[in-house]
Structure formats: C-alpha cells, structure tokens
Design a protein around this nucleic acid. Structure first.
Lengths: 125, 125
DNA sequence: GTAGAAGCTGACATCAGTGTCAGATTCAAG
DNA sequence: CTTGAATCTGACACTGATGTCAGCTTCTAC
C-alpha cells in the first residue's frame, strides 16, 4: 500500500510516516518513480511506534529495541545487549510511574465528575 | 515555606513553580520583600499538578478543574459546569487510552528483556 | 552593616514530534 | 496525451513546559 492508505489505516499523518522512516523506525520499498510502498504489516508497526512514543520513548531507543522484538512468526532478529536491557528496564520503571500518575489523575477526574453528577441528580438550583 | 524548599520537597524546579503560579495553578503569599511563601499543603498540590500534566492535561484545563476538587476537609469550592464535565469525560477516555498504550509498551519491553534474559541464562556464545 | 545565600523578573533557548507550505514529480484513469 | 490526485523533498513554524542566564533585591546570620 502507499503512504496515504497507511496513514489513514494507522491513524497517523503522512508527515509522521516520513519522519519515522528518516528515524529508522519504518522501512519501505520504492516504486520506480520513488513513491513509498508498504507491506501489510506496516500498519501494526506504526501503531506500535505510536504506543512507544506515547510511553515517552525517544526515536533512538525505539530504533534500538524494534529489531529485538519477537516477530509473530519466529524469534527476534537481534538480541538486546546488556546495556540496552538496562536502559529498557529503566524505561519500564518509568512507565510504571507514568501509569501510577495516570491512575491518580483518572481518579481526580472521576471524583470531580461524580460530584457534579450528584449535583445534577439533586437538581441544583 | 519558601520556593526553594517547596521545589525540593515536591521534586520540581523553582522555574516550574513560578510558571504554575503564572498559569493560575498555584498561589502563594508574599513576604514584605516580595518573596513567595507557601503553605504546607502546597507540596501535595504541586505533586497533583505534575500528575495532571503527565496525564496530558494542559494548564488551562487544570486551572479549571482544581477548584472543583473535593478538599481533604470538605467539599469543592466550585462545582464543575456541564461543559467542563463533558471535557473532563473526554480527558478521562483519553487517559484510559494512554494507560492502554502504556501497558502495551510495557509488554513490549518485558518481552525484549525476557528474551535477552533467557539468552544470558543459556550463556550465549 | 555586611557577606553570601536565596529569591525576584524577564527574556531567550530547547526539545522532538508534528503541521504546513511550495514547487516539482509520479501515478492512474480517461 | 492529458488531467487531476497522490507523492516527493526540503524548509520553516509551532507547541508548551522547562532550562538557563543576567541583573537586581531581599533575607539571614554573623
């Protein structure tokens, strides 16, 4: 598929896809004319990249870990170095902290919404 | 307490505290000379602000919701308007999405770390 | 009162991913 | 061949919280 379709299916801008490629996160074949051509699996890859970005990982680290992933049909292309494992472990702890923060923030919103809902039920003057 | 102590206790820079104040998220008394003086409860407030920032809320929305929080010793100062409730509900959904993304990313890291750990146990050549 | 630490304001820089625009090229369908 | 949609590259802007620096003032303790 081409970049427009991939962008639509992955819910990302074309701009971002070109950026990912420049960062070495995403590869593409090219038509004779130079247009990018993507495999079906690119959709999942892009969604994953987005999730990793959302988790606060930077391009460089994502580029390092992607080849270490266990593919759907087999093992990883590369095995993470001890150094990378150390870094990823730190990231994992950071992510745990983020999740805790998010749960707390979620609780705050819940409480506010709940209080307002009670008011509505009472028919606030 | 003064800004230096609050910054240290809340784990934030003084720069950020002044920024929060300018955004209307944090208030302070002033000494006759103009130095900021904070109440004990400011520490919790700053930690909360950080959590809300981490959840992707922007200053304006945080400023709107803070007065609607149920205080430790009583109800909220203000009740959220229907409009705000609607916005907060959207934020909550967004946060749920973030948590899902984070869990997924966490799983990816787990898997990579685990594969590498297996290798180490086997004594990779 | 004096020295040094701490605080004040204001301005400019940074980060990294993304938006956007311009101008040129390619693709696909008539 | 032609035409319009899609894609290409490259450059610049933005966002928004935070870092950092300069120059000045205030506080605290001797």
């Amino acid at each position: 598929m081409r970049i427009g379709e991939l962008a639509a299916r992955a819910g990302v801008s074309e701009r971002s896809l070109r950026y990912y490629e420049k960062q070495g996160l995403l590869s593409s074949d090219r038509t004779p004319g130079g247009h990018r051509e993507y495999l079906e699996q690119a959709v999942d890859r892009v969604v994953l990249i987005q999730a990793l970005y959302a988790a606060g990982l930077h391009s460089r680290k994502i580029a390092q870990l992607l080849p270490c992933m266990r593919d759907a049909d087999g093992g990883p292309n590369e095995i993470a170095t001890p150094r990378l494992v150390e870094e990823l472990t730190e990231e994992r702890e950071r992510i745990d902290g983020m999740i805790a923060d998010l749960m707390r923030s979620r609780g705050v919103l819940d409480q506010i919404i709940e209080v307002a809902a009670e008011r509505v039920e009472l028919g606030t003057p």
